[in-house]
Design a protein around this nucleic acid. Structure first.
Lengths: 238, 238
DNA sequence: CAAAAATGTAACCAATCTGTCATAATGATT
DNA sequence: AATCATTATGACAGATTGGTTACATTTTTG
């Protein structure tokens, strides 16, 4: 699996820290690593965007005052990106002014802490957000009309029978199961499975769709993946 | 729809306030109602559980120190309940002690505020949580007199029956649905569907209108697209 | 290390979509 | 009613699109 699509279900959680003050940044990174997180660091908005082209963090901590752009602007850009849009964001600020707090939360941050922030509280809030964004169930199962995907076991079964899938097929099916009945455009699929900036052909998606269809066909679920000409594919019911 | 299953997509959000201090409770309720939320109140843990048997709130604000049980215990019970388990919870406390904060977050609260809490900040945090718990899944539908276009599924149905459309027809219909009862000039249509500088004939629009009309005809919606001689077309109500 | 599996591309074909034209139908104007 | 202007319709060819197979390359497995 490439670094690009690194996601967090079975592995450690990735946290991206965006903070220009080196001392604070390193201190946070240190604490987070000690707690078992994988950390990625950025000292500016642009560095952050660069990082986001290479990692899909599970949570982002953003300093309000960055040298090149405001934290708010960075949040805006993240929330507009199709792939990472939903990542939880914790804002960090030196000013205790309430208007900032409110502004940050209104504009897309999920949480807000005032510096000097207690590491303990930051950790607790990070864990609270991760807990929520990764679901409550201990064993992550997605189910849709007889197709059951067990993320922990990395297994898929159709009407009880195990389905043998390659990794790409698995990820593809997972994407479909997470968005049943929704049209997934080709480039959307590309972005989510291969990452934002890979040089994979459009047609490659088709081939993998074909392979996934074949796998489903063996279990009499032939017509589950519907083609929408000119746009993409859709997982449908029957 | 029964009160029990009241969920929040189309209607106001329900907020449950669990707080024993009447002054604070009423103040919060007042502010929340003014902001357009539906509020439900409980002065104790037991009252809260009673309320939860009747309403499914979209978010719960819980005071740390309740007369009959600790807020933490209440959270535990909520998180163990199959139905409401995932509701966002904001803890409220008079003590500023950090250990409480951390404990609350570790045990299942999603957020934590210290009293005296600023109403503005509480509102902002409530909205941030609601946005996350429901905002991302808004499904984009356009509806006009029995024609329902689901942008996520890329589907159109007429009186429940699915309509099969080519991409251009789909875009055309979308344009009409976005501007019902409005006259759409030919060049307006051209600009919106083919782009500003394409070399497509005016007459091409007619052909696609024809095709769209045919598709609608199959579902007894023959006369929906009206010709306005010399100008363009209009989507009308039968 | 050899064999098997997985992956990304290219190439071919079939289905479908699209734009244009010719002609018919309709409406407006005189 | 005759003429002109505009739109509807059907047919057609070329373009686009997606399904499929084959193959080279990489990765994994035994």
């Amino acid at each position: 699996m490439s670094t690009l699509t690194k996601k967090s279900t079975e592995m450690q959680n990735n946290i991206l820290i965006v903070e220009d003050d080196m001392a604070i940044r390193e201190m946070m990174a240190f604490s987070l690593r000690r707690e078992g997180f994988d950390t990625f660091k950025a000292a500016s908005g642009h560095e952050a965007l660069e990082q986001l082209n290479q990692v899909n963090p599970d949570l982002i901590v953003i300093d309000w005052g960055l040298p090149d752009m405001s934290g708010i602007d960075l949040i805006d850009m993240i929330r507009r990106d199709e792939v990472i849009r939903e990542v939880p964001i914790i804002m960090l600020t030196a000013r205790a002014e309430e208007s900032d707090k409110v502004k940050g939360l209104e504009r897309g941050a999920d949480d807000y802490l005032t510096k000097p922030a207690s590491m303990l509280e930051l950790m607790a809030r990070i864990r609270a957000h991760l807990r929520r964004s990764q679901g409550f169930e201990a064993n992550h199962q997605i189910e849709y009309k007889g197709i059951v995907m067990d993320a922990d076991a990395h297994e898929v079964s159709v009407d009880g029978e195990l389905l043998s899938l390659s990794l790409t097929e698995y990820k593809l099916l997972k994407l479909f199961l997470q968005n049943p009945n929704k049209l997934l455009a080709r480039d959307h699929i590309l972005n989510h499975i291969w990452g934002r900036n890979t040089f994979v052909e459009d047609r490659t998606v088709d081939v993998h769709i074909l392979r996934l269809r074949k796998a489903l066909k063996k279990h009499n679920k032939e017509k589950w993946i519907q083609t929408v000409r000119g746009v993409g594919y859709k997982l449908i019911n029957q």
